[in-house]
Design a protein around this nucleic acid. Structure first.
Length: 833
DNA sequence: GCCAACGTTGGC
DNA sequence: GCCAACGTTGGC
């Protein structure tokens, strides 16, 4: 807050071209608003008396910068407020303060606008004066404010009556500043992309000339190429002054964002040394173009101190040219060099870059340089085994990562924007390019991966003190990627599987399966077996959260305990003060270790699993033609899931070499995708012998089923008989009344509401007569999930029956019908339908 | 640009 | 404490 607050609306960045008219309007409305009620005046106070509101602004900058104002602007016909860039840390408060001030200077005090802003995304309304500021302050304590789903929407008649639109600016991450546009149909369909929009409006509205981002039709004219706009359109743009729209077009170099970062009081003109990207034309001149805004803005830009006079490296490692002058999209200062943000869209001055390096993991900035003297630096051979080497092998197109065995173990801390000293990095230190706690969390998890432990020469850092904030990461500056990789080890079958089961609740939720996209979670059967959140795993794997009957250790990570609101730390604690926050991460370490290295109670299954896993990997590498030669013993299937399972079955069959049940041979082409069955039981591995053995085999099948990723909420128990009983535990499932009973001979029977499913039911046609392996069981369960219980028929005279309605069924009711049928043909016939 | 899905949080 | 919901973001 060293910057002098804006003095008046007119002293800000008013000169913005094209906005003159708008500004006038704004001022008018502002003037009108001043005659409004006191509360409104108070609401306007921030802009009029910035000094008094300075602190509040600082604290509220994040919220005030949210979509709230954006929504208000949009509603007011103004373009999005692109200076609403993500603000995650206090260090940015200053610039945000400026942005905020600018925001107010731009006439956002219209009461109507403000009231609307109050409805917008971030609830960052400044419409209620001090109370609002207090609220904002309180809200700002949180790292992220959850927006109300109904906020920020503006009517969008262009798509028809009832349509609404919302713009959301990304506040963090590598795509920070990017703007996402959402539409809401009159029916409540939330549209997130053009594709979805086209889907919703199919047959209703032709979107051929519709520009999704702007939400406008362009009258049949071909969209102009990037960066080229006709005057008319540009006029609109100018009015909008949307920097994000420019950023989206890769025009960040002259993003208006910088304009909004100006310090009004600092009116010293930008250096005349500005070159290519600093336009010299002004409004009113014939050549007045997009850069005009920059020119105007530059008039207000204080020429900053260039952080470094040395050639500045770009993120590409290229040497920046001194004669390239850019405007930092973050703070608005001009600078020389070729520094851009990670997305290479927006210029970013060295100072901001360095700051963001500390503040945000998505912006990378090298602070550590190799010492050039240590053993690692002298090593010229990649180990080929470490995570970085493997990354290179797996993703050769991605940026090269230094082999861990070649990465300097004692780099020197140095670089523009960093602390002005050189220090020797501790042996177990690492480039603190990702100082977020996440980094440590990732490391902890990653360290659990055997490959890491076995290959990373720097793994001694794995056990470093959690409190040591700079010494947590052993990875290079790509590690921030891992934040979103925490749930995936990338090695287990579930991670390797690419196909959704299509039947679990998460799959059903997916738009591609006709879902509403509310859960937005990965298929349960594809949840990582090591690192997935426990509650996301298939019930069998995650059941330990509720207590495993067989005492097996729980699988998966427990739910995190988000307690930001109670924390005094501005960011996620590096050292959980009470050992509560994020303790799950630590728990995970031991948890995973227990789950995947010991499992004393399931040694058999573990071994089976391990063996199968190895085999599967080998198999996955086989040519399909080779696999086609493998014996089959799995029945015909008609879906991906079955096919995937089929693959397991084939493998089981191959291992067994018994070729049992040749009746199941299908010759169906094996899919390349790996199934995600974690543990395999098959009679092939355990040949049936005596009756006692058979019973044991049934128990082993039970054990294998319990340790496998069964379809969601199917559970295996043993009942009197003994019989192995598979039940659907989900009350919401259409199979909640359905059971599969497997007798010691592995013959099975499906029952629906305790009534046996007739053997003539087509369900049986697709499955073997004996369920001898996990594969076959899962296959059947998956198939069952495609059915529902026949709804039967309501009684003829409902009025006379005041008791529970008892549905009637035909005596030949099929019980199970395809979900799109609901009533079987026999019941339909009963009522003459 | 689109989409999958991760991480977070408000509501219960 | 759980979980549905969804903002967000990395990958393609």
């Amino acid at each position: 807050m060293n910057e002098e607050p804006p003095k008046s609306p007119s002293s800000g960045v008013e000169p913005k071209e094209g906005d003159a008219e708008q500004s006038t309007e704004k001022r008018n409305s502002e003037a009108e608003s001043t005659s409004e009620v006191a509360s409104t005046q108070e609401a306007m106070a921030p802009s009029l008396e910035p000094d008094k509101k300075e602190d509040a602004f600082t604290d509220s900058v994040e919220l005030a910068s949210g979509e709230a104002s954006e929504g208000a602007k949009a509603l007011a016909g103004e373009p999005p407020m692109d200076w609403f860039e993500p603000l995650e840390d206090d260090d940015e408060a200053e610039s945000w303060d400026l942005a905020d001030a600018d925001q107010h200077f731009n006439g956002k005090k219209d009461p109507e606008e403000e009231s609307l802003a109050g409805e917008s995304e971030k609830s960052g309304s400044v419409a209620s004066g001090e109370r609002t500021f207090k609220k904002i302050y309180q809200l700002n304590v949180h790292r992220r404010k959850r927006s109300h789903p109904d906020e920020g929407w503006v009517d969008w008649p262009a798509l028809g009556e009832g349509w609404r639109r919302k713009e959301v600016v990304r506040r963090s991450g590598s795509s920070v500043g990017q703007k996402d546009v959402y539409y809401l149909s009159p029916q409540g369909d939330r549209v997130r992309s053009r594709v979805e929009l086209a889907s919703v409006l199919e047959g209703i509205l032709d979107l051929s000339f519709f520009e999704y981002k702007t939400g406008k039709f362009y009258n049949g004219d071909a969209p102009l190429p990037r960066g080229v706009r006709n005057r008319g359109k540009r006029k609109m743009r100018e009015r909008s002054s949307s920097e994000s729209s420019m950023m989206e077009r890769g025009e960040g170099a002259d993003t208006p964002d910088s304009h909004h970062r100006l310090t009004p009081s600092l009116s010293s003109k930008v250096s005349n040394t500005n070159q290519t990207l600093i336009p010299q034309n002004f409004p009113g001149t014939p050549n007045y173009g997009p850069q005009d805004e920059d020119a105007i803005k530059e008039d207000k830009i204080k020429l900053p101190h260039i952080a470094s006079s040395r050639p500045l490296p770009s993120i590409n490692g290229e040497i920046g040219s001194e004669d390239t002058c850019l405007i930092c999209a973050k703070c608005g200062i001009s600078f020389t060099g070729t520094w851009y943000d990670k997305q290479r869209k927006k210029p970013c001055c060295p100072s901001c870059w360095a700051t963001k390096t500390k503040e945000h993991p998505m912006v990378r900035f090298r602070k550590w340089i190799p010492c050039g003297q240590c053993v690692a630096c002298h090593n010229t051979v990649n180990c080929g085994q470490c995570a970085n080497c493997k990354h290179g092998l797996q993703s050769p197109e991605s940026r090269k990562r230094i082999c861990r065995k070649r990465k300097c173990i004692c780099p020197i801390r140095k670089g523009p924007g960093t602390r002005n000293f050189i220090q020797q990095r501790p042996l177990n230190d690492a480039p603190d390019l990702f100082e977020d706690t996440m980094s440590f969390q990732n490391e902890v998890i990653d360290s659990e991966a055997p490959s890491y432990k076995n290959s990373d020469t720097e793994d001694f850092s794995v056990n470093v003190d959690v409190d040591d904030e700079d010494d947590l990461s052993t990875d290079d500056d790509d590690d921030w990627h891992k934040k979103r990789k925490r749930r995936s080890c990338g090695k287990c079958k579930a991670c390797l599987c690419r196909k959704d089961c299509g039947t679990c609740d998460f799959c059903i939720d997916k738009p591609k399966f006709g879902g509403s996209n509310k859960k937005r979670q990965k298929c349960r059967l594809r949840q990582c077996q090591r690192q997935a959140m426990r509650h996301l795993l298939p019930f069998q794997l995650g059941q330990a959260e509720y207590g495993t009957p067989d005492g097996m250790m729980p699988v998966g990570r427990p739910r995190p305990h988000y307690t930001y609101s109670r924390k005094t730390f501005s960011k996620k604690s590096r050292a959980p003060p009470l050992g509560l926050e994020f303790s799950d991460e630590e728990d995970d370490s031991s948890l995973n270790a227990m789950n995947w290295t010991s499992e004393p109670t399931s040694k058999l299954t573990y071994e089976l699993n391990y063996r199968h896993q190895q085999s599967s990997i080998q198999m996955n590498n086989l040519d399909v033609g080779l696999r086609n030669g493998l014996p089959d013993r799995i029945p015909n299937t008609s879906n991906h899931n079955s096919s995937q399972l089929d693959q397991i079955g084939r493998w089981d069959g191959e291992k067994s070499s018994t070729g049992k049940d040749g009746e199941n041979h299908t010759g169906e082409e094996v899919e390349e995708e790996l199934p995600m069955i974690t543990r395999i039981f098959s009679l092939a591995d355990n040949p049936v012998g005596t009756g006692v053995d058979t019973e044991n085999q049934l128990l082993k099948l039970l054990e294998a089923l319990r340790s496998s990723a069964l379809p969601i909420l199917w559970y295996a128990i043993v009942v009197e008989g003994p019989q192995l009983q598979l039940i659907q535990c989900a009350k919401q499932s259409s199979m909640t009344d359905t059971m599969v009973l497997i007798d010691p001979g592995f013959c099975y029977q499906v029952t629906v509401q305790k009534q046996p499913l007739l053997l003539t039911h087509p369900l049986y046609d697709d499955h073997p007569t004996h369920l001898t392996s996990v594969t076959e069981v899962v296959n059947l369960l998956l198939d069952l999930e495609r059915y529902m219980v026949c709804q039967g028929l309501p009684p003829q005279d409902l009025s006379a029956n005041k008791g529970p309605i008892i549905l009637e069924r035909a005596s030949t009711c099929d019980f199970l019908v395809k979900k799109n049928v609901s009533i079987c043909i026999n019941c339909r016939a009963l009522c003459g339908q």
